[in-house]
């Protein structure tokens, strides 16, 4: 395969195989495999663009896309074998791709880094989760409004300092909760706008010398093109 001293995809400059403990300590695939769908989605958009701009041939691009789709199918069907020795979701998928389609698979990682790759994965994942959570908030709101409608005449004490303050109705009280949840939903919508940006293309940190077309990738992923930004900020927004 190669003359390098380890079987790691980045093993070229290493003279000793990775210590077993270090492999265990640094692996993330046991939990980041949850991002596989988004990782493949990003890879397909990336490699299609590489083919369009001529960094790789159209044929190679199509071959890699087919290979990635097959891997996605294997993952969904439970046939995919995740290996902690391959560190993370990205290297597991890339290694399987090379094993399945041969050396052309090694061209997938042209012009990108795991840094911009994972940032893209997370944004795509959070975008979907925000949409799901907003739907769930709507379900809770629907239940609240139905209950409130049944109790527009149900008198209860309103409290301040947990002391009886003024009479209200149970329906009125419930609407306060509905409005709070609506504000939360609005925060998530704002967060979605801020995270709907494409980090892919910034590579490790400084961009890449290949003639890549970031807008093309952004269009496929329905993201706005952008320079690399720190996505963890949007994580904190979600947690509000």
């Amino acid at each position: 395969m190669s003359s390098k001293n380890t079987e790691k995809p980045w093993g070229g400059r290493f003279t000793a195989p990775t210590d077993k403990f270090v492999e265990q300590f640094t692996e993330s695939v046991s939990y980041d495999q949850r991002l596989a769908h988004y990782d493949i989605m990003g890879s397909i958009a990336h490699v299609r663009m590489l083919g369009m701009v001529g960094v790789i041939s159209g044929k190679e691009s199509a071959q890699i896309i087919r290979g990635l789709k097959k891997i996605e199918k294997d993952i969904k069907g439970g046939a995919f074998q995740w290996l902690t020795t391959l560190e993370d979701v990205h290297m597991n998928i890339e290694t399987a791709l090379v094993a399945n389609i041969g050396d052309v698979g090694k061209k997938l990682h042209t012009g990108r880094s795991r840094n911009d790759q994972v940032a893209t994965d997370i944004r795509l994942y959070c975008r979907d989760e925000i949409d799901l959570i907003c739907d769930q908030i709507n379900a809770v709101l629907n239940a609240l409004l139905t209950l409130a409608d049944d109790h527009i005449d149900t008198i209860m004490p309103g409290f301040t300092h947990l002391q009886s303050a003024q009479p209200v109705t149970f329906g009125h009280h419930l609407l306060a909760w509905a409005e709070m949840l609506l504000r939360d939903r609005s925060r998530l919508h704002d967060c979605r706008k801020r995270l709907n940006l494409l980090p892919l293309g910034s590579a490790a940190l400084a961009g890449t010398s290949y003639p890549i077309d970031r807008n093309m990738v952004a269009k496929e992923l329905a993201l706005m093109a952008s320079h690399k930004t720190h996505w963890t900020q949007s994580v904190t927004v979600i947690l509000q």
Binding site: Q136, A139, V140, N142, A143, L144, T146, L147, H151, T154, I155, M156, P157, G158, Q163, S164, A165, Q166, P167, F170
Partner: peptide, 23 residues
């Protein structure tokens, strides 16, 4: 979403509590 539709209100208790505190 599952819990809210099961909420049953005790109208009388609520009313009495509202009437009791010089509200």
């Amino acid at each position: 979403a599952g819990l809210i539709p099961t909420i049953k209100v005790n109208h009388e208790t609520m009313y009495r509590a509202a009437a009791a505190g010089f509200a």
